[in-house]
């Protein structure tokens, strides 16, 4: 199904990236308070990095053939 083993590996790398983005200790840094764009920094960070991760997954899978 996957276009190549490479796509699968790229996705696995994104999985690892996600594990880092969505976990302690990175979250603790943003969780100490502070504002970004008038919103709590942690919230902005989580929603933003989540969307970026989804975009990267889509990019890996939907890009034109290598």
């Amino acid at each position: 199904m996957m276009r190549s083993r490479l796509s699968v590996q790229r996705l696995a790398a994104l999985f690892l990236l996600g594990c880092v983005l969505f976990n302690y200790p990175l979250l603790a840094i943003f969780g100490r308070g502070g504002q970004l764009f008038g919103m709590p920094a942690l919230y902005v960070w989580l929603m933003g990095s989540w969307l970026v991760l989804i975009a990267l997954m889509a990019w890996v899978l939907e890009r034109r053939k290598d």
Partner: peptide, 21 residues
């Protein structure tokens, strides 16, 4: 709990990144 609702949706996101495996 603030952002405490999010892990329930971040987990499946990570699962689908591993869907290829």
């Amino acid at each position: 709990n603030g952002v405490g609702f999010l892990p329930i949706y971040l987990g499946p996101t990570l699962l689908f990144a591993l869907a290829g495996f």
